[in-house]
Design a binder for these strands. Structure first.
Length: 273
DNA sequence: CCAGTATCCTGCAGGC
DNA sequence: TGCCTGCAGGATACTG
């Protein structure tokens, strides 16, 4: 759901919204998420600590507290972080609430529970497998060299490769569809059957679409909101995602839909080869 | 090692 | 109106 641009938007909002604040209480109930959420443990580490930084790695959000450690958060498919007044109604599936020193609350809501909130003590971030294994950031200039290098030796469809966080960190189903359409590459094409030149083009278009989306504050579709709870977003204009059966914006050919490794996939049979 | 599938969970849309 | 099915922006454990 939230892909890199949405997580980056949340990160920027929290960097400003949490600046100078201290945690003045932790509430929630421990539930099974992607990993077990341990509210008591998080509370024991974070209570009374000052927020110092909000970082992002791929789709992971990392909130640093006063040298004590880091709260690692992944939003999964349906996760939201909301910076609320205490008077605002508590949504269903609010799993973790941090009371803040300015009287507001940071709430982590995730109906489907594919998300994750986990405390990382000093030094633990460096050996956290899901962070350690992340591939190149799309906005890193090295992307243009690394994507072609990694994809060209693989037999999977390029679409699957783009979604593999160990190769490129932060691309999800929406921006994968958009990047492949922009690059003129059929999602079913195998990495090994795509020229280095075209893979370099894919790297560039992936960066472009992510960059545009970040610039515009992320795409809002269904259950995503900024920490302020705002939905007031103007999406990057999506050209193909969710538009199977409709005309291609470039050549008017009917967009096709299929599934690749279980994920909905759209492409133009005319201008993607 | 690699490629492909099953699975965790809730909410919603569409068909009957 | 309700019941059922399938699908949703993700990651990973497992199979062959």
């Amino acid at each position: 759901m939230p892909e890199l641009p949405e997580v980056e938007t949340v990160r920027r909002a929290l960097e400003i919204g949490l600046d100078g604040l201290t945690v003045a209480g932790v509430d929630g109930h421990s539930v099974m998420m992607r990993r077990a959420l341990d509210v008591e443990f998080i509370a024991s580490r974070i209570d009374g600590r000052a927020f110092t930084a909000a970082r992002r790695k791929g789709k992971f959000l990392l909130l640093d507290f006063d040298g004590a450690g880091t709260l690692m958060i992944h939003l999964g498919m349906s996760g939201r972080l909301m910076l609320c007044e205490t008077t605002e109604p508590i949504l269903d599936h609010t799993h973790l609430t941090l009371s803040l020193s300015d009287g507001r609350e940071l709430r982590f809501v995730d109906p489907r529970r594919f998300g994750l909130a986990q405390w990382l003590g000093p030094g633990e971030e460096a050996c956290e497998p899901s962070l350690e294994s992340l591939g190149v950031e799309p906005l890193d200039p090295a992307m243009e060299i690394l994507l072609p290098e990694h994809f060209h030796s693989r037999k999977s469809p390029v679409k699957s490769l783009l979604l593999d966080q160990r190769l490129v960190a932060g691309v999800g189903n929406i921006y994968a569809a958009e990047a492949l359409w922009r690059a003129g590459i059929r999602p079913t094409r195998k990495g090994s059957q795509t020229s280095i030149r075209r893979l370099r083009r894919l790297a560039v278009e992936t960066r472009n679409v992510i960059e545009e989306a970040v610039a515009q504050g992320g795409t809002t579709i269904r259950d995503y909101a900024t920490p302020s709870g705002d939905f007031g977003y103007f999406a990057v204009k999506l050209q193909v995602y969710g538009k199977q059966g409709q005309p291609c914006p470039r050549c008017a050919t009917e967009l096709k839909g299929t599934r690749i490794s279980g994920r909905a996939t759209v492409w133009c049979p005319e201008c993607q080869r």
